[in-house]
Computed example of a mutant assay.
Amino acid sequence: MQARIYQPSRNAMQSGQGKTHTWILEYVASSAREVDPLMGWTSSNDTQSQVKLRFETKEAALAYAEAHGIEASVREPNKRKANIRAGGYGENFATNRRGAWTH
């Protein structure tokens, strides 16, 4: 049984880093999804592909996978660098501005 361990990226609708600090163990689908001819829904016989386990640390997720005989691959997250300006938000309203207001 194969699984992947990753740290989720932030949602496009959020500006903060909420729900991105946990690690997720997700099973890889062992069979392809099929379209049901009557209803048109996609389905699969593999129920493990619906399971997502959340862990506090990467080491805990790896320990769980090793203890249960799961072959896991780890995908490291791409961290964003901080966007820090010297004046911060108050720089937009500075009274000592040298140039003309451009925006």
Rank of each mutant, 00 (worst) to 15 (best):
M1L: 13
Q2N: 15
A3G: 06
A3I: 03
I5T: 04
Q7M: 10
Q7T: 04
S9V: 06
R10F: 01
R10P: 00
A12M: 09
M13T: 09
M13W: 12
M13A: 09
Q14F: 06
Q14E: 15
G16L: 04
G18A: 15
G18W: 06
K19Y: 14
T22R: 11
W23R: 07
W23S: 07
Y27E: 02
Y27S: 03
Y27Q: 06
V28A: 08
V28R: 02
V28G: 01
S30W: 00
A32Y: 00
A32W: 00
P37Y: 01
W41E: 14
D46R: 07
D46G: 01
Q50N: 09
V51H: 06
K52V: 09
K52Q: 13
L53M: 14
L53Q: 08
R54P: 00
R54L: 07
R54E: 10
T57P: 02
T57D: 05
A60Y: 00
L62T: 03
L62M: 14
A65F: 07
E66I: 02
I70D: 08
S73L: 11
N78Y: 04
A82W: 04
A82S: 13
N83W: 12
R85E: 14
R85S: 15
R85H: 12
A86F: 10
A86M: 07
G87N: 13
Y89E: 13
Y89S: 12
G90K: 07
G90C: 03
N92I: 02
T95S: 13
R98C: 04
A100T: 04
W101G: 09
T102N: 08
H103A: 14
